[in-house]
Amino acid sequence: MSGIQRIALLLTIIGAINWGLIGFFQFDLVAAIFGGQESALSRIIYGLVGIAGLLNLGLLFKPSREVEREPESQPSR
C-alpha cells in the first residue's frame, strides 16, 4: 500500500468516526474542532475526506496478494 493510500485510508477512518459521532450523538467533531460546518477549514477537511473515500474505492477492486499467489504443491505420499 502506497503512502497516498495510507493517508487516504486514515482520512476515511477519520470521516467514518465523525459520521458515527454525528449518527449516535449528533456531534460533529470536525466542525467542533475547526469552527463550525461553514468555516473554510472544516469544508477543506470534508473535501479531503471525500476525495480520500474516492481514492479508497480502488482498494475494492485491487486483488489481494493471497488470491494472486498460486498454492504451493503438496508432496505426494
Rank of each mutant, 00 (worst) to 15 (best):
M1Q: 09
S2F: 03
G3M: 09
I4F: 04
I4S: 11
Q5A: 15
Q5I: 14
R6Y: 04
I7A: 11
I7S: 07
A8H: 00
L9P: 00
L10C: 08
L11T: 02
L11E: 02
T12K: 08
I14F: 03
G15F: 03
A16N: 10
I17C: 05
I17M: 06
I17Q: 02
N18Y: 03
G20M: 12
G20F: 13
L21I: 01
L21M: 15
L21F: 14
F24E: 06
F25Y: 12
F25L: 13
F25E: 06
F27I: 07
D28N: 11
D28E: 02
D28A: 04
L29W: 09
V30H: 01
V30P: 01
A31C: 07
A31E: 04
A31P: 05
A31W: 03
A31H: 06
A32Y: 07
A32K: 08
I33R: 04
I33E: 04
F34W: 13
F34T: 11
G35Q: 05
G35T: 02
G35L: 05
G35V: 02
G36Q: 07
G36F: 10
G36K: 08
E38K: 14
E38L: 12
E38Y: 06
E38Q: 11
S39R: 00
S39T: 02
S39A: 13
A40L: 14
S42K: 04
R43D: 07
I44M: 09
I45L: 10
Y46C: 02
G47R: 05
L48A: 13
L48M: 12
V49E: 02
G50M: 08
G50K: 03
I51G: 04
A52C: 01
G53M: 09
G53Q: 03
G53K: 00
L54W: 04
L54F: 11
L54K: 02
L55A: 10
L55F: 12
N56M: 13
N56D: 02
L57G: 05
L57C: 08
L57R: 04
G58P: 01
L59R: 10
L59S: 12
L59K: 08
L59W: 06
L60C: 09
L60E: 03
L60I: 15
F61Q: 01
F61S: 10
K62F: 09
K62P: 00
P63V: 04
P63S: 11
P63T: 03
S64L: 13
S64K: 14
R65W: 12
E66M: 12
E66T: 15
E66W: 13
E66I: 14
V67Q: 14
V67I: 15
V67S: 14
V67F: 15
R69S: 14
E70F: 11
E70R: 14
P71L: 10
E72N: 07
E72V: 13
S73F: 09
Q74R: 14
P75A: 06
P75G: 03
P75I: 07
S76K: 12
S76Y: 09
S76R: 11
R77W: 03
R77V: 04
R77A: 13
R77D: 05
